[in-house]
Design a protein around this nucleic acid. Structure first.
Length: 555
RNA sequence: UGGGGGAUCGUCUAAUGGCAGGACGGAUGACUCUGACUCAUCUAGUCUAGGUUCGAAUCCUAGUCCCCCAGCCA
């Protein structure tokens, strides 16, 4: 039974519950079967969480299997990244790491068996001819002239295909099913093709490679997979999946179940198009923090827990849909709110000189590391006569609802003092370059003994006693909810990356390491980038805090 | 035009003939040393038309719209 009470039900769980209840299976075995031809993205994460999650909840097993039957597109680099990403997401396959290429010899045996049964034949038609013979969606196909070769001849030809006697593309092994089937997939599909290409695992051992349809069902069967979960576009292939197993593999057979792949608003999910973004230099690489890849999300600062939570919340169904990226952002905020230490960083600094604060004096103030988590403790931050606040936290002529700093107005500096703006200093062009203020020594720590309140609390850093930093602000890569509509180029968001080079951060951040995550108070969640060094700190904004003031402003 | 699937608040997803529920988003308010968090209230949906039934998102009939399939890719 389903032992997980907090995971919402879905149609796949219903099938599993039924199979367990009727005794069809005693335990379940699933698998995640990536082709190592690219990096994993958030859509794969949905599948990973589904398959590994099911195995975990039902106390079954989930295999990681590389579907490596097309040596032309596949690379070791991708295998390594996939292994890293699945692990990072928090899943473990134990000893169940498999490669379809490990089954090549067995697969060959099944093909021979099929030939012996008279259900497969070597076809000498060219690729183009095969297409012509296949017919169309509305017109039936016609039989290949090679369809009725004898078993002996087929056996001989297939062996010689393997032996490398024939040119690439000169022959294929085909299943003998039904050229008039209304399902095009069943019109004598190719099972093996000749490719004289080095395979990243089997080297030059093979020059014939099995097709997906032949490989996948048999690999599932060999591994004892009970529920073979894949995406909707394979629905048409299911009859072939079952046909192949029916011919050559003893029961019980794995059951293929299809679900709708993930689409995210403002996000591109196709591997081909993502590769294109990388190749054209539109993004910096597969792990560019704007990419929906697992490695991009990791570099952006997303947590594995937040992605797992997301995968659970979006559910599993058969209807095509586009999930609002705001849900993903909500998930990471929720996770980071509980776990990320707070710190103060001023992204666009504006100097404030506190006129009645003694020159040269520096005092240490105590700040909570995470108000959501008392166990996170406190830290000391230096306060001095000259500090920086955020440019947007001051307005000379504030509108009604603005309650941050303005001439004559008093606000709180977080964990520090109340200050009152006394003067505004501008350059020749009228730009505000400095604020003059006074502080109330009685308000040390941030509260007034007389009980008076201030409307706003600002974050700040001491001017001298702070560190310079580069901060990278990210936004959606595309301006359109569905970037697949229309031209990719035109849908690109020109402001998907804004680099701030003048930011100042707390002295406490001197020792951070790449991957460390923080909340910059009142700003958002940030993560130390891999480009960061001791001399040049670099932070990525994972996601901004919700900002109701920004909404008010936009009205 | 053949075949295979799908349609429930703006979005995602439950409800398996018996009160259409949850989450995100949005709105309003409370709280607040983060305009954050939290909390409260509100918002808003069964593709259409018939039928069966005491009762239909669910069953039947007829439509409509959307997705997938004609690689020696997966």
């Amino acid at each position: 039974m389903d032992t997980s009470s907090n995971t919402p039900s879905n149609f796949i769980r219903a099938i599993i519950d039924e199979d367990l209840a009727t005794g069809k299976h005693r335990e379940i075995v699933t698998r995640f079967p990536p082709e190592p031809n690219g990096y994993l993205h958030i859509g794969h994460a949905k599948s990973i969480c589904l398959n590994f999650g099911l195995a975990k909840d039902y106390e079954g097993t989930c295999h990681l299997r590389f579907d490596d039957t097309n040596p032309e597109k596949e690379e070791i680099e991708y295998i390594n990244s996939i292994i890293e990403d699945v692990h990072w997401l928090g899943f473990d396959w134990g000893e169940h790491l498999y490669y379809a290429s490990d089954y090549f010899e067995q697969l060959y045996g099944f093909a021979v068996e099929l030939i012996k049964q008279g259900k497969a034949y070597v076809c000498d038609l060219s690729a183009e001819e095969i297409r012509e013979y296949r017919g169309t969606l509305t017109k039936p196909g016609k039989n290949s002239p090679y369809r009725d070769r004898s078993v002996e001849e087929n056996l001989d030809l297939f062996a010689r295909m393997r032996a490398g006697e024939f040119e690439e593309g000169s022959r294929v092994l085909r299943a003998k099913i039904d050229m008039t089937s209304p399902n095009v997939v069943m019109r004598d599909p190719a099972l093996y093709r000749i490719r004289k290409v080095e395979h990243h695992r089997t080297g030059d051992e093979w020059c014939i490679y099995p097709m997906y349809d032949f490989t996948h069902c048999l690999s599932d069967a060999i591994e004892g997979i009970t529920h073979s979960i894949c995406t909707l576009e394979f629905e048409n292939n299911r009859p072939l999946y079952e046909w192949i197993l029916d011919q050559v593999y003893p029961e019980p057979h794995p059951q293929q179940i299809e679900f709708a792949r993930l689409n995210l608003s403002y996000t591109m999910m196709s591997k081909r198009k993502l590769l294109d973004l990388v190749n054209r230099g539109i993004v910096q690489g597969w792990d560019d923090p704007r990419m929906p890849t697992i490695s991009g999300l990791r570099r952006r600062g997303y947590t594995p827990a937040s992605i797992r939570d997301f995968a659970e919340r979006i559910g599993v169904a058969k209807a095509n849909s586009i999930v609002d990226v705001a849900l993903l952002e909500h998930c990471v905020r929720e996770d980071l709110n509980k776990t990320a230490p707070r710190t103060m960083a001023v992204l666009r600094p504006l100097k404030v000189v506190i006129e009645n604060y003694p020159e040269g004096q520096v005092e240490e103030l105590e700040a909570a590391n995470n108000p959501q988590d008392p166990d996170a403790g406190t830290r000391k931050i230096p306060f001095a006569r000259e500090i920086y606040i955020e440019q947007e936290d001051f307005m000379e002529d504030p509108p009604k609802k603005f309650f941050r700093l303005a001439p004559g107005r008093e606000v709180r500096l977080r964990f520090a003092y109340f200050i009152t703006c006394t003067d505004v200093i501008k350059d020749e062009d009228g730009n505000i370059i400095e604020i003059r203020a006074t502080y109330d020594p009685e308000t040390k720590g941030g509260s007034a003994p007389d009980g008076r309140k201030v409307k706003a609390t600002l974050h700040w850093v001491a001017a001298e006693q702070s560190l310079p930093a580069e901060v990278r602000l990210y936004d959606h890569l595309f301006t359109k909810e569905d970037p697949n509509e229309g031209d990719v180029e035109e849908n690109l968001n020109p402001n998907s990356l804004e680099t701030l080079t003048e930011a100042r951060v707390e002295l406490n951040l001197a020792t951070v390491e790449p991957g460390d995550r923080f909340q910059f108070e009142r700003q958002g969640y940030f993560c130390v980038d891999q480009d960061s060094t001791k001399d040049k700190l670099v932070f990525n904004r994972t996601v901004a805090l919700r900002d109701t003031w920004a909404k008010v402003q936009n009205q």
